[in-house]
Write a protein that binds this DNA or RNA. Structure first.
Length: 888
RNA sequence: GGGCGCGUAGCUCAGCGGGAGAGCACUGUGUUGACAUCGCAGGGGUCGCUGGUUCAAUCCCAGCCGCGCCCACCA
């Protein structure tokens, strides 16, 4: 016997263990089946499950479980990302907390060892959290971006791209994080709006006493690195100055005044100070005019020795104050305007980013992007929803060289070695590099390996094939590459998806996946991004604790409408938890009524109208869920099952089944029991991808607790029968009529406020049907309703009974003593007016020749039917009003 | 500045060329055997505004008004 209440905690662990121990998550059981493959977006090794993960992995699991049931050989490849900066920061923080030596004191080797220790101890907690969620990954294949195989893949790719000239070293401006003391890529820079000032500074013109060019800047300290001033070539105000010089205040350097279209005559004075070593635009202008690149900052953003002594070793912001004061003192500060402007920060927070001139490794992304663009243009990879395609193109067309070196310790060390004269050898191993160097120099020399590591995303870019065994030609790689669907959030389309496309195309000659399903962000109930600092984070682990994993999964699936952010609140989850309870109780009800699966049951031969009807509805639902999942319309899939189970199966079918269960017709009873069990069983299958735990539990119960229970639900086949197979048009029509009738009766009774003592319609309709063909005879039903009304009221005979006409039947219901007649009259009048409005609308339509000529026949017929219905409705209401008048 | 998207019931949102929907909230009502984590009934919407296309527009197109996100720029 099922427990009275559904307790998720009691069953979830058990089933997950069974699945994992049963090896059901592993591919290979069906070698002749088509493979279906998803690679997980690898969570950071430092990570803990947040709502984004919960959504992302729920959707992947829904797909995997669905495909598994649909007969595919499914591999969901799991693993984790080493997350360079994030992890290094975590461990550094840990060391600081414990008062241990910091990484510099400790040294590189020791520090990296500590990170590995940390990973072994507390890394990867998120994988167990994914298990808690129900993720059906093949854990035996778990990979880590820094394990041996993947590291080999990384080196391989680096060496290969370097040989092809697609990876190179270059000296140019990078985004420099002065706190972490590393370069970061454009994507890792976040612009943050801040209050600031725009200062105007006078640069004296050489040889023209008292004449100035006024320039403006938000970063006055950069003037120490100025090596020119630009004006627009057409700008009449400054044309005479082109080729002359300014004198840089406080420094005294002569600055050439150059003509460049970059200087916008409309802005400010039209003259722009040029700091080629500390500004991206100035860098370009500087290159064009061969201006000096003067780096004035140290790696931690202090003023260096290229600046006048007075400012050296000052922090950049300290220097700013000093410079402003000095300019003021010299009368060269022309003004200060308070403005709001954006300031670049690293995406890990900290201090403002500084454009900084260094030598770094770059990937020629522009070249690699060509194939990746073609893949999408030619439809070999498509985005769902489609509009992300544009975003992808936008980025790809304007792609910049990808800076891949990082001045960190945690990551893949760059496989490049430097000879004594600076010659660089890029090889898979140190031995190979040594050999190459020896050959190059004709003697054995000492090499030093490049100190830098690679951007974390470099290894992630290889994930779809490196995890499958590449560069080795493993059977798994052959079978599961390309993968099928990538499920991800839009925030990493550039970071990750685009780069996987580039690497996949380049190294595998085939796109890594045919579909990219892009889901939205999970926000809090007010639509705010969840963040720790705002304190609005909803923890999926808490939710699962409280409501069960299935409820959380169902909620996320039901809310995952394509393209729109999900606003999550606990109420939502609670609502879907109630749905789980509903399912549980439906199963209990079936159990109590001895509904068991009957192997000989043939749905096509069902005779009872209700049974034929529910089987048709089941088929429709099956088709709807299937179509929705195939189209990645997760919310529709969840919605279809929800609607069917709750509002069709429970609210209507089981109510109709009650009289049959308690009736005397044994054949009907047996058929109904078998039907109920059959429908429940199929519903469990349809729901399993979204709510695997509760369905697995009920499945076991339905199949018989012990012994011959057969395959677990996870291996069950996706229901094949569609609407055509089970649909029964007659049954559907009859049921529709009955449902409407009953609703109408209920409505009338509610409106009339019939007192509790008069127990009537619904129970009567539900319970006391004749065994056979009862629903097909509306007339009989109505008559019976009327009779029952009479009987029920007989205990307390109606006084001054008025009659309300319902359809063609007459129900004897006492009115005057139980309702407010004028209110009832008003209601009826309102309804009549509404009906007449509808009638007028439809009549107008039907008298429109264009409509009759051009609208599809079915639409015309439908409208005629509706017209008749509305007219009948109006007449009925009118008669009711009439009777009411008599009663009054 | 470029791109994407959103304005539908009190709230959160589905739907998207031919009868305005769901959940929650609200009102009324109902528990002696599936379920109060529930049932039944009900109120509530000129589907942002203005034009256009169409026999027909919440849905397609254009413009406008609000709002959001991404990218770029910001001397």
């Amino acid at each position: 016997m099922l427990d009275k209440t559904y307790a998720p905690q009691a069953i979830e662990d058990k089933h997950y263990r069974q699945w994992e121990e049963g090896g059901y998550f592993k591919p290979g059981a069906r070698p002749d089946a088509k493979p279906f493959t998803i690679v997980i977006p690898p969570p950071n090794v430092t990570g803990s499950l947040h709502m984004g993960h919960a959504l992302n992995n729920t959707l992947q699991d829904v797909l995997c479980r669905y495909k598994r049931m649909a007969g595919y050989d499914v591999l969901w490849q799991p693993g984790m990302d080493h997350a360079g900066i994030a992890t290094q920061m975590v461990v550094e923080r840990k060391l600081a907390e414990r008062g241990e030596p910091d990484r510099r004191q400790m040294g590189r080797e020791k520090f990296i060892e500590r990170i590995w220790d940390w990973k072994a101890e507390s890394g990867g907690a998120i994988l167990n959290q994914l298990r808690r969620l129900g993720a059906s990954c093949d854990w035996s294949r778990e990979r880590f971006t820094m394990d041996d195989g993947l590291s080999e893949a990384v080196r391989h790719v680096f060496v290969e791209l370097h040989r092809q000239g697609l990876i190179y070293k270059d000296q140019r401006l990078v985004n420099w994080d002065p706190a972490l003391e590393t370069a970061i890529s454009d994507l890792e820079v976040q612009q943050t709006e801040q209050d600031g000032s725009l200062w105007s500074i006078r640069y004296p013109i050489e040889g023209a006493e008292g004449a100035y060019l006024t320039v403006a800047t938000t970063r006055p300290e950069t003037m120490l690195g100025d090596s020119g001033v630009a004006v627009h070539p057409e700008d009449e105000r400054h044309r005479h100055l082109i080729g002359k010089h300014c004198i840089l205040p406080l420094v005294g350097r002569r600055l050439p005044i150059v003509a460049d279209e970059y200087a916008d005559p409309e802005q400010g004075t039209g003259a722009v100070k040029m700091t080629p070593a500390h500004d991206f635009n100035d860098f370009e202008v500087g290159r064009r005019h061969d201006l000096e690149m003067i780096n004035i900052l140290t790696v931690d953003a202090k003023i260096n020795e290229n600046a006048p002594e007075a400012y050296r070793s000052l922090d950049r912001f300290e220097a700013r104050k000093r410079i402003l004061a000095d300019l003021e003192a010299e009368g060269l500060l022309a003004g200060e305007e308070k403005i709001r402007h954006s300031v670049p920060y690293g995406d890990r927070g900290g201090v403002p980013i500084e454009p900084y001139l260094t030598e770094q490794w770059y990937v020629d992304a522009k070249t690699l992007a060509k194939e990746a663009i073609a893949s999408v243009e030619q439809g070999r990879t498509k985005f769902v929803p489609e509009n992300w395609t544009k975003t992808y193109y936008e980025w790809m067309y304007n792609i910049q060289p990808w800076c891949i070196s990082r001045q960190l310790w945690w990551g893949h060390r760059i496989p490049a070695w430097c000879g004594p004269d600076g010659h660089i050898f890029v090889e898979m191993t140190e031995e190979a590099a040594q050999a190459a160097a020896d050959a190059h120099y004709g003697k054995s020399v000492e090499l030093t390996q490049d100190e830098d590591v690679l951007d974390t995303w470099f290894s992630s870019a290889l994930w779809p094939f490196s995890t499958l065994g590449w560069p080795e030609e493993t059977p798994t790689l052959a079978r599961h590459y390309p993968t099928d669907v990538l499920v991800t959030g839009f925030d990493i389309i550039f970071f990750w998806v685009a780069r996987m496309m580039m690497m996949g195309d380049h190294f595998m000659k085939e796109e890594p996946f045919h579909t990219v399903y892009v889901h939205a962000l999970v926000r809090d109930e007010k639509g705010q991004k969840m963040s720790k600092s705002k304190g609005n984070v909803i923890d999926p682990l808490d939710l699962m604790e409280k409501f069960g994993a299935d409820s959380v999964r169902f909620t996320l699936t039901a809310l995952a409408a394509a393209g729109r952010d999900i606003k999550l609140s606990e109420d939502r989850v609670e609502g879907y938890r109630n749905f789980m309870t509903k399912l549980w109780n439906a199963a209990r009800f079936c159990e109590m009524n001895e509904c068991a699966l009957d192997p000989s049951f043939d749905p096509a031969k069902a005779e009872q109208t209700v049974n034929r009807w529910i089987l048709g509805e089941l088929g429709r639902t099956r088709d709807a869920v299937t179509a929705a999942l195939d189209a990645y319309r997760f919310n529709d899939a969840a919605g279809a099952v929800y609607q069917f189970l709750w509002h069709t199966f429970c609210d209507w079918y089981l109510e109709f089944a009650k009289p049959l269960f308690s009736g005397a017709d044994e054949a009907a009873k047996a058929e109904t029991r078998a039907t109920a069990a059959f429908v429940l069983e199929r519903t469990l299958r349809l729901m399993h991808p979204v709510a695997p735990f509760i369905t697995a539990e009920l499945w076991e119960f339905l199949k018989g607790a012990d012994g011959a229970k057969g395959d677990p639900l996870i291996l069950a086949a996706w229901p094949e029968e569609g609407a055509e197979a089970l649909a029964d048009a007659d049954a559907a029509r009859e049921m529709e009529w009955v449902v409407r009738l009953i609703s109408a009766v209920r409505s009338v009774r509610a409106e009339m406020n019939v007192p509790a003592g008069a127990k009537v319609a619904l129970a009567a309709v539900d319970m006391r049907a004749e065994a056979k063909g009862w629903l097909s005879r509306h007339e009989a039903l109505i008559a019976r309703l009327a009779r029952i009304e009479a009987i029920d009221h007989a205990a307390e005979p109606p006084k001054g009974a008025a009659q309300l006409v319902l359809d063609e039947a007459t129900l004897a219901i006492p009115l005057a003593d139980v309702i407010d007649l004028s209110a009832e009259r008003a209601r009826l009048e309102k309804e009549i007016a509404k009906a007449e409005g509808e009638i007028a609308k439809i009549e107008k339509k039907l008298s429109n020749e264009g409509f009759l000529a051009k609208a599809p026949e079915a639409v015309v017929a439908e409208n005629k039917e509706r017209l008749a219905d509305e007219q009948a409705q109006r007449d009925k209401l009118a008669r009711a009003l009439d009777r009411l008048a008599q009663a009054g």
